[in-house]
């Protein structure tokens, strides 16, 4: 319950939605409501429903591999949509199924899952490991690399913006495959660590690599050193060994009450190795 909310707006345009946000930030955008409902905060006095802004559209250009998803698309819709079952070998659809439970995914939206900086988010590392960009509207339309999500200047921009969607640009040539792992105490619990990796390959060579680790326990980040190392290499299983150490060195994990630093490091190594041998194996089997 948000007991101080007295107004509920349903704007019909992005401009109108933005103009309804007050200076003192006591008005909040609402998408699925699953995050807001749990906050039980006394702060919000107005809710601005984003549900009528037609931000739930999906465009996939088969030829170029460009995917655009509107911010109010429900997570479960993305799990089920036919168009996504083959996108990046099913990476997005299959792994978003690891977010929360079926009823939470039925209500929670893509945008709502990335705006608030939850360090344990699964959605963010899944998208980061596809090299996703975030689209927003702050009076004009903007696009930024999702990897900037936690930078101070972008957080400031987002404070006065509506996230309108994400876009993923897979390389036009080559095939993309990936693996995502979530370590949690139960199927439904939030992650104590998660890691995702996609590789694009053409003629036996890796043309693009994207890897991200989250719940470190701090915010998710891309492992660009590992990506740079992998890009241009031939698809061979022994790549995994070197990349694994590099991932452990650069993941920046620490310990918390859920997991010690050493245990997290061991998990980073294990997930990296399994992800790379798994994806490389998929390519080699073809």
């Amino acid at each position: 319950m948000l007991k101080n909310v007295t107004e509920y707006h349903i704007p019909g345009s992005l401009d109108e939605a933005l103009s309804l946000q007050d200076r003192e930030s006591r008005s909040y955008f609402i998408a699925g409501g699953t995050g807001l409902a749990l906050s039980n905060s006394n702060r919000p006095v107005e809710l601005i429903d984003l549900g009528k802004l037609h931000l739930d559209e999906l465009h996939l250009e088969d030829e170029s591999g460009k995917l655009e998803i509107g911010a109010t698309t429900k997570i479960q819709q993305l799990v089920e949509l036919d168009e996504l079952q083959d996108f990046a070998g099913g990476y997005l659809a299959n792994n978003l199924e690891k977010v929360g439970s079926y009823p939470i995914r039925n209500a929670g939206t893509l945008g709502g899952s990335i705006v608030r900086p939850f360090p344990w988010s699964d959605v963010v590392p899944i998208l980061l490991s596809l090299g996703a960009k975030i689209r927003y509207f702050d009076g004009t339309h903007g696009v930024r690399d999702l990897n900037n999500l936690y930078s101070d200047d972008f957080r400031e921009t987002l404070r006065n913006s509506i996230v309108t969607g994400i876009e993923v640009d897979l390389p036009e040539v080559g095939e993309t495959r990936g693996r995502f792992y979530k370590f949690s105490r139960s199927e439904f619990d939030i992650a104590s660590l998660n890691l995702g990796c996609t590789l694009t390959a053409l003629n036996g060579k890796i043309t693009r690599a994207r890897m991200a680790v989250g719940a470190r326990p701090s915010f998710a980040r891309r492992l660009t050193e590992v990506e740079d190392f992998l890009q241009g290499q031939s698809l061979e299983n022994d790549l995994a060994e070197e990349a694994t150490e590099m991932a452990a060195d650069t993941a920046g994990v620490t310990g918390d009450r859920k997991m010690s630093k050493d245990y997290r490091l061991a998990q980073v190594r294990k997930m990296t190795e399994e992800a790379l041998t798994g994806v490389i194996g998929d390519f080699l089997e073809q």
Partner: peptide, 25 residues
Amino acid sequence: TGDCGACMVLVNGRAMTSCTLFVSQ
């Protein structure tokens, strides 16, 4: 908190926890 499912309902045919949905929705 959306964890236990004791408040599950169907909204337009989809299962959702009614504790994480606002009446306005």
